[in-house]
């Protein structure tokens, strides 16, 4: 060590003269200048919080305003629609007729039918691809698989819908010999394209979040890579996988443009995937532009919107919970 031990060579000499090194104009403690800056600081905090709360209030207004437009149904609109109309009468959606029929059951069934097809096709593909990317892919390939699949998420849904209508619909029709060019199956396949990147990204994140320690422990016990992936990594990431599926499901239920373009939009009450269907979201999109503001039909459409909002809000909330549980499980905190 080059440094000298100064204190050992030197007598301790407490300083006797003390020169405070401050601006003599400033009274010790509070300066008017910094008082001013304080005031600005406080004001800014109030302002920023104010804007934040205003913005957050707008977010809450979404629920209020979508619900508010449906609210008159509670006491009934002048043209006879009530809160019971979507759930009573024959299972028919016929809003524009002399006696309008607003039963939403065919729409709910249609939505579930298309969503189910999309989930059945999309989930295994997305999960398998996520597992491959996270566990088996060589480093360099992994680095571009993920952005490539995420690019799929960047394609606007109207483009996917357009592609499905122009190209996919004919392929599906020919392959399965379906009578109707636009049907639930085609819509389901097209919808799968939209949810694959969502399920993939979230579950891949969950898989990569599993600490390497787990894998090494399993491999050290003589398990193969695939065994490790299936028995150790996948189960550890289960809450994240569940979140991925739930959030994908939420997206599928609310997705509008694709189903609007390729589902055929007939509110038929049937489980047959070869028939055209009509979903909740597509109904709003197709009819809202032509409806008379304030009419029963208008209110019912807002009611459907409220329904969609509630369903997706619950799904998002549940998905969020699962994601938090994953983090708690892997890292001990959220």
């Amino acid at each position: 060590m080059k440094t000298k031990f100064r204190n050992s060579e030197r007598e301790l000499k407490p300083a006797t003269t003390f020169r405070p090194n401050v601006d003599p104009n400033v009274v010790a403690g509070v300066s008017p200048r910094s008082q001013f800056r304080h005031a600005i600081d406080r004001l800014a905090e109030i302002l920023i919080s104010g804007v934040a709360f205003f913005t957050i209030a707008v977010i809450f207004l979404i629920f209020v305003y979508v619900g508010k437009e449906a609210l008159p149904l509670v006491w009934g609109t002048s043209d006879g629609a009530t809160i019971a109309s979507p759930f009573t009468g024959p299972f028919t959606w016929q809003p524009v007729s002399t006696v309008p029929k607003y039963n939403v059951f065919p729409l709910i069934l249609g939505t579930l039918k298309v969503t189910l097809i999309a989930m059945l096709l999309g989930t295994p593909l997305a999960l398998a691809a996520a597992l491959y990317t996270a566990e088996f892919a060589p480093g360099r390939i992994r680095e571009w698989i993920k952005p490539a699949i995420e690019l799929l998420a960047g394609i606007p849904s109207v483009v996917l819908g357009s592609f499905a209508l122009l190209v996919l619909a004919s392929w599906v029709q020919d392959a399965f010999g379906i009578v109707y060019r636009l049907n639930a199956l085609t819509a389901g396949i097209a919808l799968a394209l939209a949810i694959i990147p969502i399920i993939y990204t979230i579950s891949e994140d969950a898989l990569t979040a599993v600490p390497r320690l787990y894998r090494e422990a399993s491999l050290a016990l003589g398990a193969s890579k695939a065994q490790t992936a299936v028995r150790v990594v996948f189960p550890s990431a289960i809450p994240g996988i569940a979140a991925a599926i739930i959030l994908g499901f939420g997206r599928a239920i609310g997705e509008t443009m694709i189903v609007l373009m390729v589902s055929g939009n007939s509110a038929i009450l049937s489980l047959d995937p070869a028939l055209p269907v009509r979903t909740l979201s597509a109904t709003i999109a197709a009819e809202m532009a032509e409806v008379v503001v304030g009419s029963g039909h208008y209110r019912i459409l807002f009611f459907i919107g409220t329904l969609l909002f509630l369903i997706t809000a619950v799904l998002n909330w549940v998905g969020d919970r699962f994601n938090r549980r994953l983090r708690e499980r892997l890292f001990g905190s959220s």
Binding site: G29, V30, S31, R37
Partner: peptide
């Protein structure tokens, strides 16, 4: 001067 008194200007 008490550093933790309410009148203390923390920034200063």
């Amino acid at each position: 001067e008490n550093v933790y008194s309410d009148s203390m200007d923390v920034i200063h």
